[in-house]
Amino acid sequence: MDFQPTEDQRDLRAGVRGLLEGRYGREALRAAVDAAAGTGTGTGAAVDRGLWRELGEAGFFALRLPESEGGVGLGLPEAVLVFEEAGRALVPGPLVATHLAAGVVPGAAAGTAVVTAFDLAGDLAGDLVAYLGEADAVLGAAVLPVGEPVRAADPLTPLHRVARPGGAEASASASRSASVSAYVSEGALLTAALQVGSALRTVELAVRYAGEREQFGQPIGAFQAVKHTCAQMLVRAEVARTAVYAAAVTGDPGEAAAAKLLADEAAVRNARDCLQVHGGMGFTWEADVHLHLKRAWVRAEQWRTAAEAEELLAAELLDSAG
């Protein structure tokens, strides 16, 4: 089976990259980071509604809606290419939830509504929800809940904790969970595509810095240890990208879970290796490397964690062995 992108798919990816480079390049990213830091709360910045509408107008959220419903009429293979580019640019906001809500929540497809989801691992105190303060709706929830702001590792991913209902409200919570569960496989795959984009971008950052930074009279990229690190980063990212593309073509939940596992590992480990290549410079606020690592940490907890993916894959292996 051939998983190579077609010419139309490559053109789609190039178009999205051009849009994001023009609308959300490094200057816009750093401005958003500085604005988040300037609040002094560490809870992140608001969603850029103008960018959100532009993404909607470009068909980002309505990509998989039928043309009869005002969508673009494409499929998962095209969606992962688009989300890969968004991950590369570190576009903030609940991109996956809003995309999944197209056709379900009014305004989601057009980008005039911001939709988040109960897609993060919670704790004993309640469920964590990203961008709740900026959202117009929560996927699978009848009403927009009220939450308490929580300090987040990623400055561009504000978090809120929503207390878990009990007693008479427990059935409503179970209904919400059942509604969201229908989107978990696709949500995990699209999040994996975001992770792949980030993993590939950190490869670029590491290689570029290795060619510029000199030590002992030559670029550090000439040293074997640095070469091996960059090569391992590329292999890790490409293996994850292949798994994501394959899962998008087959639509198999097990393959989507495996792709999420590989993509999470690629994004986190590549960001750490990129920090290693940068040395002390990589740990400074001015460098972009730490932003990729922090976002990768958050995404690794979204839609399907490593433990959940491993459980699903183990169950499939047991079923096939039986």
Rank of each mutant, 00 (worst) to 15 (best):
L65I: 04
L205I: 08
L194H: 08
L312Q: 11
A97H: 05
A46D: 09
R299E: 12
D127F: 04
V115I: 09
G111S: 09
V277T: 01
L132R: 01
E67W: 09
D127K: 12
L63A: 10
R295M: 10
A86W: 05
P106S: 12
T157Q: 09
D288V: 10
L19Y: 11
R208Q: 12
A182Q: 14
E265G: 09
F60N: 05
S185I: 11
H99V: 12
V196P: 02
G25Q: 01
L291K: 05
G25L: 05
R213A: 10
T284L: 12
T250M: 11
A37H: 13
A193R: 11
L313A: 01
L317P: 01
S173Y: 15
D154H: 08
C230G: 00
S177Q: 15
A222S: 15
A125F: 11
D252A: 05
L124P: 09
W303S: 02
A240V: 05
A108P: 04
S68N: 05
V268P: 05
P158A: 02
A62Q: 02
V114N: 01
R176A: 06
E301K: 15
L55M: 07
A36S: 12
G221V: 01
P253G: 02
G73K: 02
A206Q: 00
V47S: 04
L156D: 01
V180Q: 10
G75P: 03
C230Q: 02
L74R: 08
V180T: 14
A35R: 12
A110M: 06
R30H: 13
A287T: 13
A152M: 03
A32R: 10
V249P: 01
A210D: 03
D319H: 14
V226P: 00
W285I: 12
F83D: 00
L159I: 07
A240L: 01
E21P: 03
Y245R: 15
A32S: 12
T202C: 02
M1L: 14
Y131K: 02
A315Y: 09
R17A: 12
V80S: 00
V115Y: 00
D264S: 14
A307N: 12
D273H: 08
E69S: 11
V146P: 07
Y209N: 05
A102F: 06
L194Q: 08
E169R: 15
L317W: 07
E212Q: 15
A199T: 03
T6S: 12
T242H: 13
A300P: 04
V105P: 00
F118G: 13
T39N: 15
W303T: 05
P219V: 02
D127W: 07
L81E: 11
L159N: 07
A192T: 07
D319E: 14
A135R: 06
L312I: 11
Q302L: 07
A248L: 13
L124D: 13
A97V: 08
A199F: 01
T112N: 13
F223K: 01
A309S: 12
H290R: 15
P77K: 06
A225P: 11
P158Q: 03
